[in-house]
Design a protein around this nucleic acid. Structure first.
Lengths: 374, 374
DNA sequence: GTCATTTTTGAATCCATTG
DNA sequence: CCAATGGATTCAAAAATGA
């Protein structure tokens, strides 16, 4: 009876590897599966982050980096060889009309994408996971690394891949689902913790992300393979959505955590809608956007509503008023001698002959951009 | 006088290729430029690799559709060779501390990114241009392709690339700029049209995109190279923002349209082009200067903002707190049990009856020095 | 128990200058 | 070249703590 608990969907003479986690190296383990037996692959391979020194936050706390042995490669050549090997192994077990998703960051995704193409996969979309709450860039040296990239590819150019277009559109307020998805990272109760409260896996993916992937590109009953199973998000979501899964994982600790997690999942297609829901928020319009849209030009003079204070707009969207420089909020505060100021309502500009708050100009832009916000 | 119109920034003995469009093949034309002469590269290479009507090579010759199995392989190889060649040519003319942006879609960006890494460029971010108004997927077979990817890379791992962090943060309402940018595609009056109302160039990029790139990663007066100049967006924005440009373009029609476009651009006033600077660019002032100026006297007691820790100032501008001695930073770290501390913001002293951070006292000194002209 | 405030944390290729 | 050190730097969301 215990064995049955691992098999959410009962099938007569079901293959023994269905809905199980195979322990072992990805390439060796996949040799145990028959050719053309898998409908969809979701792969979250090591990113080869190449981290060197440590990193602390401005409050001096230490950032818990991904320094696991499985993410270390000697060179790009070694990483490419690894990528080629697992992609070939996956390709063998994939059905001719099957498809593949790979997730990665700029450290590895370009190499993976090029190798995919070299091996004959046919890229259908690259999909950007925009993180609602990414880790900031603590040292202020780059842009906040606020997204990861997923590549969706069919096995070959002619493959009749699955795409549930109408379902995606329906869940997206009747507009086509775009290639940029806004979703929070995995935290809170969803994040697996060990007895000491430490995260079980350093890079656990959110279930909402996997749910969108499966609802978009698989059918109930499909077999979904995850060759880097980790904490088992793929398995948990597959079971919940009535898909079969196969996982491959080397570390016993991850296997144990994933199995317990999956055992606790109830198959409930009704949960699909809940899982699919992304974060839909009003797009935030920064002041710089008003310059980009030409509503304000560099060199323009802003004043408060009564003309007591004024400041000049620079090309980088900062303000300058005498020796005072900074954002609309900062300079608004400085000219008034306050600690803080809402620059949007404080500053005005002549627009179509009338003194208009820049907040009103923002409304114009917001209406134009509203459609892309989700 | 006509020639002068092409040079927005007058420089004595300015290199003849500055602020011009060089006609010719990208690789051959770049041989005319000296090594290490360019600060920033923006490249929008061709990526018409897998168009529906058949395959075309990078040289626009049509691939025979009959033996497309081999040509697919050949064309990826040809594209890689082309990418390698132009990246090497660009690399030669790039200054050691220069940087590069490349924009592309899933058809080509993975190959470009992998080649960048192979040639020693160091990826700083991948930035996603989210299109506010993308072309829908008419056949409903995929997700709406609503973004393009840009790779920002320095010439090498140790390069001291330019990043105007504070300017970007002010631009974005005082939160650091993320790697996903929402911008409309190029339409309306900005889109170049020929006499018949047809668009001059099929993939004209919006000026707002280029403006953000330049404001983030270049300084006024920098030299910006665009090896695939096309309709000249890079040149137009560079001129408007007070940067120099060099363009390379093969098609005379594009050159003519771009030159006319650039000639019509006005450079923004110099005052509007100054970049917001942060503390990093302020002149260094040693703590001892505060004693020399009499703002702090030897023997004075410093405390943190909440009065939990204290230390005494010695005549040599070192601090002592019990057995702990050293610089303001060192003692600040020691009393808190940290391995680092910014003593300027940590330590406070009573000044004119108010508890004031020594960082604020430093500002007084800086203002005095600025007033004295350095 | 409720609400307000503080603390914690996340796939990160995250410093610059002087001696 | 390396070592030492001055000193600049964070956002959103959830959990934990406090009133």
């Amino acid at each position: 009876m215990k064995a049955l608990a691992r098999k959410p969907i009962e099938v007569a003479n079901q293959a023994p590897w269905l809905d199980t986690i195979i322990k072992g190296d990805c390439i060796a383990a996949l040799e145990k599966l028959p050719s053309a037996s898998v409908d969809l692959v979701f792969a979250d391979p090591p990113y080869n982050l190449q981290l060197e020194g440590g990193l602390t936050r401005p409050d001096h706390s230490v950032v818990d980096a991904v320094d696991d042995h499985w993410d270390k490669f000697d060179s790009f050549e070694a990483y490419d060889a690894f990528t080629r090997a697992w992609l070939l192994a996956v390709r063998r077990v994939l059905k001719p009309d099957g498809a593949l998703w790979v997730i990665g960051s700029y450290h590895n995704i370009f190499r993976v994408g090029a190798m995919l193409q070299d091996l004959g996969f046919w890229i259908l979309n690259d999909v950007v996971w925009r993180k609602a709450n990414p880790m900031p860039n603590f040292r202020g040296k780059r842009f906040t690394n606020a997204h990861e990239t997923m590549i969706w590819a069919s096995r070959g150019q002619g493959s009749k891949y699955t795409f549930n277009y109408e379902a995606m559109k329906a869940f997206n307020d009747d507009v086509q689902m775009r290639s940029d998805w806004l979703l929070p990272i995995c935290t809170g109760g969803e994040r697996l913790k060990d007895g000491d409260g430490h995260k079980v896996h350093p890079t656990q993916k959110p279930e909402a992300l996997l749910a969108r992937v499966m609802l978009a590109s698989s059918k109930p009953g499909d077999v979904i393979l995850d060759p880097f199973f980790g904490s088992g998000t793929t398995g948990a979501v597959a079971k919940r959505l009535g898909r079969h899964f196969v996982g491959v994982e080397r570390e016993q600790a991850y296997i144990d955590a994933a199995q317990a997690r999956i055992d606790a999942v109830e198959t409930a297609p009704a949960a699909a809608l809940e899982l699919l829901k992304g974060k839909r928020s009003e797009p935030r319009i920064p002041f710089g956007t008003l310059l980009e849209r030409g509503l304000i030009v560099p060199g323009a003079v802003l004043t408060d509503s009564r003309g007591r204070h004024q400041a000049r707009v620079r090309a980088d969207a900062s303000l300058e008023s005498g020796a005072m420089m900074g954002s609309i909020h900062r300079v608004g505060a400085l000219v008034q001698g306050f600690d803080a100021c809402n620059g949007w309502t404080f500053w005005h500009v002549h627009h179509n002959g009338r003194l208009t708050s820049i907040d009103d100009l923002r409304k114009i832009v917001r209406d134009e951009l509203a459609a892309a916000g989700g």
